Computed example of a mutant assay.
Amino acid sequence: MTYYDLSIISIHGFPKYNLELMAIPKGVKVYLRFFNYSDIIHLSEQEETKFELKAGLISALCNFSNQIDKHIEILEFTTQSDTKDKEIRTNKGDALITTTTESYLFHDQVRKKIDLIYSKFIYPKLPLDASEEISDNEETEIIEILTDGKAKTHLNLKKEPIEISAHKFLEEMDAYGLKAIIITSMDLSPLTCFSSKTVYSLRDINEILRNIGNIPDIDPFEWKYRQSFITNQQCWVFLINSGIGITVEDLFEPYYYLLVTTPNSYLGEFPARLTAEFNDILT
């Protein structure tokens, strides 16, 4: 699980909806991501007003962080001209959406999921303080979007040929340092893992991804590699954007293939070969 909760509130602070997916894990860094679907409200420029707002914000955040047993280290603000919240929308209202997730997820891909949830389930209910509640069926659909239900189902239908192909590659490339092959969803949420001698659990995969640090955007059919660690042992991770995937509503969700190797492994054109074979199976 890479999403832990989702909350919907109005710009005026009305708590509309809260979804708890899983307890936030202890001992790991998580991100509380903000998505603004409201019209920008220009507040007073008086210093007293700014200070009062800041004081209230800090107090509320400290109380919240204590409640989830976390420390707040950095609160990052982007300028309105830089953030995609500034993009022209035809369906703005009074909603703010937050979600607590793993830190390594692609933020722009998380945004696309939240955009879909907003346009399908929230916008038709605006204004929030006078709308009907989210139904059980709608909540099930929201969970399916956040947890990649359709991507998992499609992958499961191809389970046998993917397993055969993955284990063939692991045996072939073992001498070159390949240790595991991971398939993730559009935002880097792990879906399945194949390994040879060392068995990698979901906990291991999360540790590897958390330790990568900043993960850049990757164009379709391209790959990049980063260093990481697992149980204090260094490893390399090749991240491949498959360029193929499934579509939920109008949202295209590509799969990513991750190759975990020993440090300084040279794979040559192997990532391209694996991508071509996996793509043939999954399309």
Rank of each mutant, 00 (worst) to 15 (best):
C235M: 06
W236E: 14
Q233M: 12
I230N: 12
D219W: 07
Q234P: 01
N241D: 15
N214P: 05
Q233C: 08
F229Q: 09
I212E: 00
L209N: 06
N206L: 09
Q234E: 10
N211T: 01
N214E: 14
Q233A: 11
W223P: 01
N232G: 03
P220D: 08
N214S: 14
Y225D: 07
F238C: 01
I212D: 00
R210V: 04
L209M: 14
R226T: 07
P220S: 12
R226M: 08
I218D: 02
T231V: 13
W236T: 09
D219Y: 12
W236F: 07
I208S: 01
I208Q: 02
N232A: 11
I218W: 00
S228V: 04
R210H: 14
I240H: 06
I240R: 03
R210S: 09
N241T: 11
N211M: 04
N214T: 12
Q227L: 05
D219H: 14
S228R: 04
L239W: 00
F229C: 00
Q234K: 09
N206T: 11
P220I: 05
Y225A: 02
P216D: 15
F238G: 02
N232K: 13
T231K: 15
K224F: 12
N211G: 05
N214V: 10
R226V: 07
W236K: 02
E222W: 01
K224V: 15
I230C: 05
D219P: 01
N232Q: 11
V237E: 03
N232L: 09
N214F: 15
I212S: 01
D219L: 15
N214M: 11
P220V: 06
N241E: 12
R226F: 08
N211S: 10
R226D: 02
I240G: 02
W236N: 12
E222A: 10
S228W: 01
V237Y: 04
N241R: 12
G213N: 08
Q234S: 13
I208G: 01
V237C: 09
I208A: 04
I208N: 00
